[in-house]
Design a protein around this nucleic acid. Sequence first.
RNA 1: GCUCGGAUGGUGGAAUUGGUAGACACGUUGGACUUAAAAUCCAAUGACCAUUGCGGUCGUGCGGGUUCAAGUCCCGCUCCGAGUACCA
Length: 1218
Amino acid sequence: MAYDFKAIETKWQKRWAKDQTFRAKQPQEFEGDPKPPFYVLDMFPYPSGAGLHVGHPLGYIASDIYARYKRHKGFNVLHPQGYDSFGLPAEQYAIQTGQHPSSTTEINIEGCLDNKGKILDKYVEDNGKIKNSALIDKSKETCVDEDHYQSNVIKGYRKQLDKIGFSFDWSREVRTSDPNYYKWTQWIFIQLFESWYDAKAQKSKSISELVNIFEKEGNIIVDAAADEDTTSFSASEWSTFTDDQKEELLLNYRLTYLAETEVNWCPALGTVLANDEIVKGVSERGGHPVSRKKMKQWSMRISAFADRLLRGLEDLDWSESLKETQRNWIGKSVGAQLKFPILPFPKGKENTKPGYMTGGNNAYTLIEKAKENRNQPTEAEKTLWIQLRGKKLSGYKFRQQHLIGDYIADFVCLLKSLVVEVDGEYHNETKAYDEERTQFLNKKGFEVIRFKNEDVIGNIDEVLEKIKTKLDKLPAYTKMAKPSEESKVKPLSIGEGQGERIIEAFTTRPDTIYGVSFITLAPEHDLVSKITTLDQKEEVDAYVKASAKRSERERMADVKTISGAFTGAYAEHPHTKEPLPVWIGDYVLAGYGTGAVMSVPCGDQRDHDFAQHFGIPIPNVFEGIDISKEAYTDKSNATKIANSDFLNGLGVLEAIPKAIEALANMGQGAKKINYRLRDAVFSRQRYWGEPFPVYYINGLPKMIDEKHLPLKLPEVEKYLPTEDGAPPLGRAQEWAWDTEQHQVVSNAKIDHKTVFPVELNTMPGWAGSSWYLFHYMETENRDQHIASKENLDYWNNVDLYIGGSEHATGHLLYSRFWTKFLNDKGVFPVDEPFKKLINQGMILGESAFVNTFTIVFTVDDKENNNNLKETPKVLKVLLSNDLGDLNIKKREYIESDYISNEIEKIIQKAEEICEFENKNQSDKNGQIVYMGLTNVKRRVDVSLVNTSNELNLDGFKTSPFGKEFKDAKVIYNESGKLLVSREVEKMSKSKFNVVNPDDICEEYGADSLRLYEMFLGPLEQAKPWSTAGLSGVHNFLKKLWKLYFPPNSQGDEGQDFVVSDEHASKESLKILHKTIKKVTQDIEDFSFNTSVSTFMICVNELTQQSCKSREVLEPLAVLISPYAPHIAEELWELLGNTTSISEVDYPVFEEHYLKEDSKTYPISFNGKMRFTLDLSLGLSKDEIEKIVMAEERTQKQLDGRTPKKVIIVPGKIVNIVG
RNA sequence: GCUCGGAUGGUGGAAUUGGUAGACACGUUGGACUUAAAAUCCAAUGACCAUUGCGGUCGUGCGGGUUCAAGUCCCGCUCCGAGUACCA
């Protein structure tokens, strides 16, 4: 009987589904002690409409083999599957067509075909056209009466997976876009909102606990993860805050919070773009300009968990490289945060009259403004100034438009610290600002009196009287010279404000502090606009604008172009007090550290490049190191610090703590641990994602009570952002929360009393995928909890997780974060989600290219005086690839009198072979006068190419991209074939190199596909797919089948199943046990490719031995069943068993079958193997040496020389040196 | 740029972790069977030299090194791939 894989595979797939063979048991289902649990999970797939290609199932096959193996080993295996079904592609399609993303998702999962492979009626229009939504290639109209219409119809993820024979427990399927599922995503969000992080205890705690602490001791003592700019307050201050103020403060502590974050904003599309949606500064779709913009969004305080996420890696069985990637992503660095005061005036413009210098450290920018104000006073100001100037008012000296801190006071009497302000109507609208200003001035010790414009103009005398009375009452301050005493006496002193405006910079090398020669800020840094001098404003503004257009990645990747701008401002070196120029440069990123760098050109290459480019000095702080060409970035302790005052002669290790100590004593620095890990932005301006269970009162977020979840996605009429730039949910008519009815109501009802607007953003893709593994543990009561305690305790976490390395930092970090958080909250019993993790490598496609060229020419028809240049002729040619490369540059135009050799050859060949259509004409009427020749390799669909790289010409000419070659001339190779060239690339639709697993299953069967995917190479390595190689594993399965259906003596195909109960031969048992040993070891090591080879060797040998013994053939079927389950089940049944093979005990390896008593020794001379020698393993070293030396071939090799040394490793090798 | 991988015949890959380089397949060539093809079976297949046979030289991206012995360890490069925070 022939191996009928189709019948066998359909039979067993049906049987498994019917019997629920792979349903995992819950712990309570066992009578007595439950079997040990084993949880095998694949990374959550997104069900894309393009369907599976052969790369997708690779990881699933590996995990399936492992899951099946573990069942044989006696485990209760949980191997579920589901869909991460929220996401951009469905949304994109919704925007284009208006089709609801939920139905797109549904189609992508379920497919459009019935069980017989016929399209379902609901996807066919009356005229026979298949609805666009059911098509893979939407641009290709497809009708049901076409022959192979199925090839362009979405098969559905589930149907495709089912064909490969996975042992998934589908009864536990989840979908992130299902409201019953995202109810729990929303629930987790609320838990995060209601929590803060106790950094001392390293634990998330309830926010009410934090409120208790604030009530008792304010926020000064507690060590909580919080926003950097959180102000300190005492318990009594807390008690004076309004509820809204308290709420606002608590947002600084919540584990999910609203904050301004930078995004890539595309005004034309009205949306935020991912870095990879931006190409060369413009949007990938449409090429619209993109700029960086701040936006208020939800963030997750993952940074609080940085240290735990880092330490947790130690105990995980993940690859070292993946752990390293996460370590780098978290990016812990120990260093110091330093404060550099900004000098009030630029170098050389220092004010020489310190007594009047009441301005802050950006005085020089405001002073220009003040001058302007002085020159253009308002009517009232002018009136008052006439009365105040020149000590007119009882001898008090007034100054007009004078700087105090960052403010310009209208009039000020410094002696009495009195400010006189004249307000116009304008000030009514800026009351809050005025109050803030008054508060500031009061703090500085100034009294402020205000007058209205009309008071000054209408009643100047009364105003002057009021001022005079006030002045008389106030005490006079005298100018003091010493700054230290001044502060006691006079509220405003020399350099007041110094240190108030500072640049904070994090550095890992505080020991190189004396090497700092400038400061560089990120162009987005808040200080930039405040400190830039008027002279530099234009340049700085232009630079900031230009860098806002570049994406972060672009800025990081581009190190060749050094760019920057000088702000005109100076900061002060903490030790030398020298002024340091403050620059901006886009090599400094706002999101890293403080967005400011203390630039040490001698110790950092980027700083060095920058300094060299802009001619900034490069002081050297390394003893005996030449830094003229490049920076010295070595951290070797042997190198001593020089030119650094108290740090001289120290190595890095001693210098760092000493440098920090000195700075700390000055109050200008402290040791700091910095993490590269940034808080994760959690808002998306999209429709197809989880809605936030949040509504807003007074602009402050409130959580919807968890008993009213899920908050379901509202319907919208379009999936685009609104015209005024709000996210798509801004289009929903019913998107308001009624706090009394506890339900979503119409927006019209918003009254800000009981009905409030609901959050318009949705959650990102990683929300639903960060906890899904735990929901698979629950079957019965999914509406009551993520999973019951009993189930969580039984299954714990994932024992084996397989997926692509693209998730290394995103998904894997976020789900670890959520697991740790929910562990803190007592929801999960574990604090890591995935114990062991394997990254499968990518399967690459083999793209095909046909060599084409186009000759453009005109014929100079002199006789008829026709200028045919206007209507050039075009000749298209297809050239078999093996005829060689043409090596002709694109668009190289050649005059008729100069045709290069190569082109001439082509033309000649074209003429000869293709019957050059214009040859006669050119002979008769003139000559070819103008030619263009374009040589292009064109992509062709791999389905049009066979395994010998021959192009199906008819197919090509009718394909959409081959149409233009309909009348092309073809140059075949000598065997009359048209060959294409191949190139290995990522497998993708756009490259026309996709191989569909359905087709493979159809032609070779699922077992062949499974074996071949494994056989291709190591699981973790990227490897190219080549369908040609499949016949090897397919042949193997046929050979395996033949072992049980042996051919008759004439070699004819065996019709009968023949298995004998006689004992197997020693050799057969030996190869069986060799196979058991190797395959078991391979599965444990995830080396599936080598186990397939081992099976092949085993079957080859057993065939040779004509082994028919049940003693060998029965365990062989079990061994192979994880890899090729269908054929194994069939053979198992033929062997007389009535139950599934899936839980049969795995064969036990017995060492004694492998006992060898001799070994074929390689005999080497100077390390080179010359011949082999069979020797007994019982021999001693001396005996081996004796035998080897006596060997004739040894003497021949030595050729009379005496060996210097003979190295013998018993059981391994003999090496003779000499 | 940074981080992490990788490089072995015509192709995918193997090599018990320092001990016979190229297992197992694909492909190719030759042969058997067949009217023929397919299927199947057998043989050869790293390159070069030699060939009646025995054999010899080179060879794991490149350049060095350690060792009796290096694809494997060390130092210095080259090239290719992946990730880089809103694709999933």
